[in-house]
């Protein structure tokens, strides 16, 4: 496993963590039927933070970030995103989803729409942006992820890495204040992982608040300001990346790190 996600210097001038709270999760519990999948989660995310969440499969890390935009419903505790509490109130859910972008492991692009239509759909229908303006914004972000020339193609005609970059652009078109990444590189061939990580690093350099579930420890080292290790539905350890990797406190963390970095 490579030590670094990209072999260049990260521009840290915009990467600053403010005092403003972006996400506040208090005593949150979630069950799937009788299975207690998230246990007593407490997490405060400040604006500008880049948090990497790692852990063995089934540890609840994906479920945790999916609770933040209500793709999963929590049963106990509170989640406050941008000052709005997530409850069954649909208005709040819609409001939060407009502010929180999400990138999925399997891209989840809409295969019946062109790249451009994928990017303009939500701005037009949810934010009521005029079509022309939405297309300009979409083109801007497609240029940013370096695939403006693919705008009129369909997702099925693009490679996995390109599709994932489109998915990132699609989220950015909604001008979110927080971005969630659910294993964004796990479904990609090795040579495509880098181009997606590159895009994510650029996003971090612009000061985006990011929660990233990933096994890319190079990315965690270079970009994250905090690494969270989860196991059995609980936050086991969190720390600055330097300290997390060089001096893990818990046995579980050490075991996990030795398994993914050991060879």
């Amino acid at each position: 496993m490579s030590e670094l996600a990209v072999d260049r210097e990260i521009d840290r001038s915009q990467m600053s963590v403010s005092d403003e709270v972006a996400i506040e999760i208090t005593n949150m519990n979630k069950w799937y039927g009788a299975f207690h999948v998230l246990r007593d989660i407490n997490l405060t995310v400040y604006r500008g933070e880049r948090i990497v969440i790692c852990g063995p499969s089934g540890s609840g890390k994906s479920t945790l970030i999916r609770c933040i935009n209500r793709l999963e419903e929590h049963q106990e505790g509170t989640i406050i995103v941008d000052g709005t509490e997530l409850s069954s109130d649909l208005k709040n859910i819609d409001k939060i989803r407009r502010e929180v972008g999400m990138v999925f492991q399997h891209f989840n692009l809409f295969p019946h729409l062109t790249i451009m239509e994928n990017c303009t759909l939500a701005p037009i229908w949810v934010r009521k942006t005029p079509r022309k303006e939405a297309e300009e914004v979409a083109m801007h972000f497609l240029e940013k992820v370096k695939i403006p020339e693919q705008a009129d193609k369909y997702p099925g005609q693009l490679s996995g890495g390109q599709q994932q970059r489109v998915a990132i652009a699609r989220s950015l078109c909604m001008k979110p204040r927080i971005m969630l990444f659910d294993e964004p590189t796990s479904a990609l061939d090795p040579e495509m992982i880098k181009e997606v990580l590159d895009t994510m690093i650029e996003l971090a350099e612009e000061g985006m608040t990011m929660l990233v579930v990933t096994h890319e420890m190079g990315f965690a080292r270079q970009v994250a300001n905090r690494v969270i290790f989860m196991d059995q539905g609980q936050i086991v350890e969190q720390n600055e990346p330097e300290e997390f990797f060089s001096n893990p406190k818990s046995d579980r963390t050490r075991l996990f790190l030795s398994q993914i970095l050991g060879h």
């Binding site: 793709l71 999925f104 989840n108 939500a122 229908w125 949810v126 699609r170």
Partner: peptide, 8 residues
């Protein structure tokens, strides 16, 4: 999920 996450 993608449709939900985009706020549709």
């Amino acid at each position: 999920e993608a449709a939900d996450a985009l706020g549709l």
